[in-house]
Design a protein around this nucleic acid. Structure first.
Lengths: 66, 66
DNA sequence: TACATATGCAATTTATATATTACATTCACT
DNA sequence: AGTGAATGTAATATATAAATTGCATATGTA
């Protein structure tokens, strides 16, 4: 599950830990999502999107170009 | 977690069971998602959206009007 | 009436997202 | 060289999504 969380977070100039705290998960969870290594819940995706001022589609829709 | 799955599925004229089979889950899972009673994984949301020819945002973004 | 299809719903089990803890690496800065 | 901040990653524990099974109800229709 590739996504645009990492690049968007970096543009927003916040750390994994700050994002994690704001959406109520741990830093490790954010790290694994950014790495595409797991399959977050819809609620978490929505929380991340709102925190980064993006929509679900902007972060998670058809990111794969392979 | 309210969403537009049920109304979209009905417009597409397919049953819960047909949708479930096409996205690889059970009918009960689709039923509970439509009812807003749980928090599906991102992969499942994407599979449902593609099957219904919608995007994530159309089905799951800011559906709540309360 | 009877039968089939679609859906709601509840109990239990299984798979997996997420938490927790811990340690390693990289990089900027002094 | 040393220190601290940010990140990668791995092992184990816990919470919960999803499966499975089963039964109830509504609706259409022969």
């Amino acid at each position: 599950m590739r996504n645009n969380v990492k690049i968007t977070r970096i543009k927003a100039a916040i750390t994994q830990e700050q994002l994690a705290k704001r959406v109520g998960v741990t830093r490790q969870t954010i790290g694994l999502i950014e790495k595409g290594e797991y399959n977050p819940s819809l609620q978490l995706c929505v929380a991340i999107a709102k925190e980064l001022n993006k929509t679900l589609d902007e972060l998670f829709w058809e990111v794969d170009t392979e």
